[in-house]
Design a protein around this nucleic acid. Structure first.
Length: 156
DNA sequence: GCCAACGTTGGC
DNA sequence: GCCAACGTTGGC
C-alpha cells in the first residue's frame, strides 16, 4: 500500500463535497500534469490512503483522509470540448490523461495547516515542504504519513 | 492581486 | 534539441 496527497481548491471541490457524494465516492479528474498523470496511471492503487489538501484558499493544509477505490482510467473530461480540461490532442484510442476514484474516509476535526507542517522537524520529504513544488498529486513516505495522521487525529 | 517557481510550447 | 516566451500554480 502506498500513501498520497491530493490537492484541491475547496472553492471548486472540497472535502465536504466529497463527503456529500453518493457513496462518498468521486472521480479525481482534471489532472493535466505529466508527472502527476504518471503517478495516477502507474502507481496509485486500490486501497492506497490519500490525504486531502486544500490549496489556494484562506486556510491551506491537510483536511481529511480518503481511499483509492478505482485505479487509473481515462479522464472523460479530456474529450469534452465544453470542459475546461478539454485536450484536442488526446483521443479515446490513446487517452493522454487518466483519473482515479477516491472514497471519503474522514474529515479531521481541525485542519493541519501548511505552516505547521513546515515547522515539523519530522517532515522533510513530502513535496509540500520543498521549495517550488507544485505537484497536485504527490507521494507521501509511510513514516511521514503516519506522523501527519497522528497529528491530525491527535487533536480530535 | 502579486510574483516566484515551475511546466509547456514552438520557432529555429 | 535549445531556449525564450508564455501560461499556470499556489502561498502570501
Amino acid at each position: 500500500m502506498q500513501y498520497w496527497l491530493f490537492k484541491t481548491e475547496p472553492d471548486a471541490f472540497s472535502i465536504d463535497d466529497l463527503a456529500a457524494m453518493p457513496e462518498q465516492i468521486e472521480h479525481w479528474d482534471g489532472i493535466r500534469n505529466y508527472q502527476a498523470r504518471n503517478f495516477l496511471r502507474d502507481n496509485v492503487k486500490c486501497g492506497d490512503q490519500v490525504f486531502i489538501y486544500h490549496s489556494s484558499c484562506k486556510n491551506v493544509g491537510i483536511v481529511g483522509l480518503a481511499e483509492v477505490v478505482k485505479e487509473g482510467y481515462a479522464d472523460h473530461t479530456q474529450f469534452n470540448p465544453d470542459s475546461n480540461y478539454y485536450d484536442p490532442k488526446s483521443s479515446p484510442d490513446n487517452p493522454r490523461w487518466v483519473m482515479v476514484d477516491i472514497q471519503f474516509k474522514q474529515k479531521f476535526s481541525q485542519i493541519l495547516p501548511l505552516k505547521l507542517i513546515k515547522s515539523m522537524p519530522e517532515i522533510i520529504e513530502i513535496g509540500l515542504v520543498k521549495k517550488g513544488h507544485r505537484l497536485s498529486i504527490m507521494p507521501v513516505q509511510p513514516a511521514e504519513f503516519e506522523y501527519l495522521l497522528s497529528r491530525c487525529q491527535g487533536t480530535s
